[in-house]
Nucleic acid binder design. Sequence first.
DNA 1: CATAGCATGTAAACAGTTACATGATTAT
DNA 2: ATAATCATGTAACTGTTTACATGCTATG
Lengths: 180, 180
Amino acid sequence: MAKTQQSKYALLGALTVFPMSGYDLKKWIKNTTSSFWTESSGRVYPILNNLLKEKLISCNTSHQGKRQKKIYAITNKGKKVLKKWLIKPALPTNQRDEFTLKLFYGKNLSNKHYRAHLLQQQKIFLAKMYQYNKLIKHIQTKHTDLDDAKFWQITIKKAQYHVSAELKWLKEIISGLTQF
Amino acid sequence: MAKTQQSKYALLGALTVFPMSGYDLKKWIKNTTSSFWTESSGRVYPILNNLLKEKLISCNTSHQGKRQKKIYAITNKGKKVLKKWLIKPALPTNQRDEFTLKLFYGKNLSNKHYRAHLLQQQKIFLAKMYQYNKLIKHIQTKHTDLDDAKFWQITIKKAQYHVSAELKWLKEIISGLTQF
DNA sequence: CATAGCATGTAAACAGTTACATGATTAT
DNA sequence: ATAATCATGTAACTGTTTACATGCTATG
């Protein structure tokens, strides 16, 4: 079974927010959806060209001096195709979490190294917490006009709940470790 | 930068628990670590042969009638290589969650379809909750002897915290949806 | 004038799943 | 008998990242 070209739909989805160039898409996806989605530029450009061939997006090339910028917009056909995909049940996430794998085989780690992993994770998740709080405020003040805003808030809240859960778990496990 | 062949280390880790065949490994990984790790048989067998060539594992072929079974055990060299990997900071997880992506672009979904996604997710996570409760009891009663057991409990607890967070979030979002 | 960021793209390498091939054994 | 599961493995396909190539533009 083909893996339904998730990247293709991720790009179409982003273009329902506003028209963007390949470069914009890459950056925008990173800035707003990095908690649950990433794209590499190595894929973005070829996929945009495919979408253009399929007439799911249109392209408007703007010239600023000698530099060209291709702004893509989603077409009606593109919206239909996207909606058809959106209503399908989501595929389960690929579960491959190196951090948890390392803890699972923690028998083979010294107490010191095991603890170091937990503290590192705590640092990372505290930073995430800070980022999500910033992001949610940013949307509240900057994008109250967009239809998208309330859907974004819902997914950020989800991320926040998971970050809280991770931090709660970390605190509990770290405090339970025997000192050495 | 090479992606450190995560599968290789996942197999080495599993072989620190007890010697297993390729078939066993595939099944064991699915049964015990599916919340954060999966392996496909298409990878398991070639990787085992590589590990054998590198002398990180040894092989003992047993014959039961005409069927052969290759039981692999981790060598001292293998343990060293594994430990070296285990102490390195874990790579961040690839974030690609189709469910969240679909909700994020929920503007393009009807209230009905949006709700359907949430209810489906609730079903999936209730089932997960049940599985983890079962798993944690199974380890408590069957594997109290193993050094591994307490490390496994820690990762299952983590999974439980995240499942609880997801369910809490789902409940809140579902009850906040406007009826139609 | 160097460097960071804008902008598009390609090629190579790697990762990973799926489907298939082969055949044995166990349960119904 | 036949279906399910045990058991090992290969080949084809898809997906994805990384590194590179190219050149422009704004900032200190």
